[in-house]
Design a protein around this nucleic acid. Structure first.
Lengths: 219, 219
DNA sequence: AGCTATATATTTGTCGACAATCTGTTGACT
DNA sequence: AGTCAACAGATTGTCGACAAATATATAGCT
């Protein structure tokens, strides 16, 4: 999770992004440019550079001459995002089945074994599972060897997905299930069965989305 | 194709975008901020605002402390983009079959009839067909009622796709074929057969991509 | 001659100030 | 009392100038 931070606006971007994803800056709240620029000790120009990138990640919404608001988490948006994500990661999975090398596949398999162990030790602590889950998805996406797709999922959508997961919370019973699904997916990829891998990944993500949707129903 | 142009940077963004898509600013060329800002008679801050949005559309690439370059059209990128587009518009089509109203469907059908007429009159002039093609795709995408998907396809990817079509050129024989495919797609949507509509749209776009790929092979 | 290192020049990143626009309030009028 | 209009306050959009970084040119060395 090491971002290439070279300029001041890079750092501000990363900092604010984390604050939004973790809910430190509440969803739906208005963003004051003068206030935030003082808070991060940069000029407004630098802050606005960061805001532009946050908009590219769909974490804030801007209106001309009005200002920026942090995105509001709604059930409709969750559905929209997960429909898109399911479709795209399904594609990534199919391409991964065609393009991943044997070495890359073996790495993912050993990664899953590590998860299994930490899961036994730290039973119930969903945080680690979440990190592991994201790592797994990262590897599959990279395995597609489709740079446009990789950028779309890993840079432009990733933090938004993470925001729902962090703020809505992941609950227990799905954790072990997700692990089995990961295993089935990498097996399909190893077998070169792109069609099956795509189907399994789409189901896996749909289930994950439904899981978060249930959190909304509880309110 | 009327964009909401409210600020100076909006106008500069739209102008430069068109220049890039149409090849007035050559692909792969470096962008000089001082030069462009003078050319459009705005300050560098305003220009940079526009450049940020061009980057969001994947039309330019920026490197910290180095500068911006117009994207270079390659066969590999074309493949990557069309794989993603095929998947996403396929999804849009399936959702459209579920969510489009009867009125919306009828509008698209009458739209296609208009295309058939203009096509008879202006045979061979692919420009009109291209406009019509894009209009058709627009309507289907909007019909998905998925705002995230709509934004992704209509705002973030659309001009990039158009850049390939404009600069690589669309040739004749595929034009009438595309019309028939459009007809089959809207019929599937009208019948509420999302699965078929998705399949047909994916094929339609893949064929379109292959068509442009052939242009590359000719070099 | 070719390569390295220094110095110069250009470009990008950042800053503070001004102008244009919007928001909320007050006050007048029907 | 309610509606509309002008005003005040604050916010965003834009500008020109300075600082930091990179690219280019020059000079020195092997």
């Amino acid at each position: 999770m090491v971002d290439n931070v070279k300029t001041a606006s890079d750092k501000v971007f990363v900092d604010i992004r984390q604050a939004i994803v973790e809910g430190v800056i509440p969803q739906g709240s208005k963003i004051s440019e003068p206030e935030l620029s003082k808070q991060h000790q940069v000029s407004r120009a630098t802050l606005r550079e960061a805001l532009n990138r946050l908009e590219s990640c769909h974490l804030i919404e801007r209106k001309a001459n009005v200002g920026s608001r942090v995105i509001a988490l709604t059930e409709e948006k969750l559905r929209d995002i997960y429909q898109v994500r399911s479709s795209l990661e399904g594609l990534a999975c199919r391409l991964a089945a065609e393009n991943m090398t044997c070495d890359e596949i073996q790495e993912v398999k050993s990664l899953l074994n590590q998860h299994l162990n930490t899961q036994r030790v730290k039973q119930g602590e969903s945080y680690y599972q979440e990190e592991g889950d994201l790592d797994f998805h990262y590897r599959i996406i990279k395995g597609s060897k489709n740079n446009h797709l990789i950028n779309l999922l890993c840079n432009e959508m990733y933090q938004l997905v993470r925001m729902y997961r962090v703020q809505m919370g992941m609950n227990g019973p799905r954790v072990t299930k997700a692990f089995d699904e990961h295993l089935a997916i990498i097996n399909a990829i190893e077998a070169g069965d792109g069609e099956l891998a795509e189907l399994l990944m789409k189901r896996h993500i749909s289930a994950s989305g439904k899981n978060i949707e249930n959190k909304f129903k509880q309110d």
